[in-house]
């Protein structure tokens, strides 16, 4: 089972490297999306493997997912106001 942790560690380092590399590519407005995409994958790896979310009771996974959803609601609804002001 230890291989799982090592695998996650290698994956995280690789993703970090890729993300760093991508930051040198002129992606324009997509730069932010790509960088946050890498971050989301990395957070998922930490949560699922290191924090054992996949094998946790359902309640814990539900809390973690719910928290992400509600943070997204806060950021998006506030942004919806700011960006539609005339």
């Amino acid at each position: 089972m230890k291989r799982r942790d090592v695998g996650a560690f290698v994956a995280l380092l690789t993703l970090t490297g890729l993300s760093l590399g991508a930051s040198y590519v002129p992606l324009g407005a997509w730069g932010m999306a790509v960088a946050l995409g890498f971050a989301a994958i990395k957070v998922s790896v930490v949560a699922v493997v290191f924090m054992h979310l996949a094998r946790s009771p359902r309640a814990e996974a539900l809390f973690a997912l719910g928290a992400v959803v509600v943070v997204a609601i806060l950021v998006l609804l506030a942004a919806a106001d700011v960006m539609t002001r005339t």
Binding site: L77, A80, D81, V82, M83, T84, R85, T86
Partner: peptide, 9 residues
């Protein structure tokens, strides 16, 4: 000072 869209939503 909120946007009309925000207020409607």
């Amino acid at each position: 000072g909120m946007s009309t869209f925000g207020a409607g939503a």
